[in-house]
Simulated scan of single mutants.
Amino acid sequence: MNPLPLPAAPAAEARLAGLDLLASSVLLVDADARVRYANPAAENLLDASLKSLSRQKLTELFANGEELAALCRQALAHKWADLRQDLTLLRPGREPLHVHLTVSATLEAEVLLELRENVQQLKLDREERILDHSQANKELIRNLAHEIKNPLGGIRGAAQLLELELAARDLGALSEYTQVVIKEADRLQTLVDRLLAPHRRPHIVGDVNIHEVCERVRSLVLAEFPHGLAIRRDYDASLPEFRGDKEQLIQAVLNIVHNAAQALAGRIGQGDAEIVLRTRVARQVTLAKVRYGLALDLHIIDNGPGIAPEIRDRIFYPLVSGREGGSGLGLTLAQTFVQQHLGVIECESQPGLTDFRILLPLP
């Protein structure tokens, strides 16, 4: 049983009160690497109360706590005024914490640990997971589609032969059943062709102006939804052209915008549906572990109901759809086309605002 935290002296209470106001997470530990104090931000970050954290050793809080404790000992030995470094804190049974750590000794022979979540590392980890999932999905889709394609041809051919046999025996009335088989086989064939499309079609590279891509998509979607939907432009005219497959990028953006328009059905009926196409330049962007000085930053924003929380983390998986009757392939294909351009698609969604962000490296 851990002892209760020692009561703080009035001067200490005043000192700690200031730390309570910080947005960054702060731990105060003693010479034995035991936690004496944690501010509210640290309680939120570690998902634990001050009472449960107090008097625990860093080695009890983190699987690699000895590394942190060693830094504290070095700080107390005045090996440096303060140390700043990125660190991954391992917690048994929980997700690792990627933090930017600042370690400094106090005049009271204690050590102040300031922890800030490393957003860039979290982003890199998320992108790596997406790429791994995407690669696995592509292999699965390719293999599954080929396995389905062969028997489909046999089923359709057998149904056609059966239809001819029925006609020869004057049983043409039964041909409606063979027609059902043929039509369903054709429908599945179309689905398989869509699954295989990104892997069959050659990558045709040329100069691409992203605003021409956006304008093409805008005209196509407005032709289908002429009333009740506004597609607003917010372009950065300084964006340079880049090398890419224009048709693939049109298809990728079209799939996202078309999904947004379908999700806006309710607002289109009310006449206040809106999609924003916003282009900007992003600087010093890391995509698939490669650092680029410049990147195209395209946002597709709608004011629809948002993506259901239960599928939000799986929207780029094949055959996952939030719409009744949807094939669940539009975003999968969009992601494949963007990744073939060394880019990435990100998504943030809440009721009233869904933002798909396409990042592509620029020369």
Rank of each mutant, 00 (worst) to 15 (best):
63 A>P: 00
83 L>K: 03
167 A>E: 14
157 G>Q: 13
10 P>Q: 00
59 T>K: 00
261 A>C: 04
296 L>Y: 04
33 A>E: 10
99 V>W: 07
81 A>T: 11
227 H>Q: 10
288 A>E: 04
245 D>N: 05
208 V>P: 06
36 R>W: 07
123 K>P: 00
283 R>S: 14
264 L>Q: 07
4 L>Q: 13
305 P>T: 07
65 G>V: 00
241 E>T: 08
24 S>I: 00
335 Q>I: 05
102 T>C: 00
39 N>Q: 12
213 V>E: 01
11 A>Q: 13
300 I>S: 09
349 S>Y: 07
335 Q>C: 05
111 V>W: 03
44 N>M: 08
62 F>A: 02
304 G>P: 02
235 Y>P: 01
32 D>G: 11
117 E>C: 08
207 D>F: 08
222 L>S: 08
124 L>K: 12
288 A>Y: 11
298 L>R: 02
359 L>K: 15
253 V>A: 04
173 A>T: 12
231 I>C: 08
85 Q>N: 10
232 R>A: 12
126 R>P: 03
14 A>L: 09
164 L>P: 03
254 L>Q: 15
314 R>C: 11
248 Q>R: 15
152 L>E: 01
137 N>D: 13
14 A>H: 12
154 G>H: 09
281 V>I: 09
155 I>G: 07
130 I>V: 07
187 R>W: 03
171 L>W: 15
225 F>H: 12
15 R>D: 06
102 T>L: 14
273 A>L: 12
85 Q>L: 15
200 R>C: 04
258 H>C: 02
169 R>F: 07
28 L>M: 15
148 I>W: 09
33 A>Y: 09
199 H>V: 03
333 L>W: 05
332 T>Q: 11
329 L>K: 04
66 E>R: 11
126 R>A: 12
23 A>N: 15
194 R>V: 06
96 P>Y: 03
17 A>H: 15
47 D>G: 09
156 R>P: 04
63 A>I: 06
309 P>W: 11
297 D>M: 03
42 A>Q: 02
13 E>K: 13
95 E>T: 08
311 I>G: 12
47 D>I: 06
100 H>F: 10
82 D>L: 14
242 F>P: 07
81 A>Q: 13
60 E>R: 11
183 K>V: 07
29 V>Q: 01
256 I>V: 15
231 I>Q: 00
299 H>C: 04
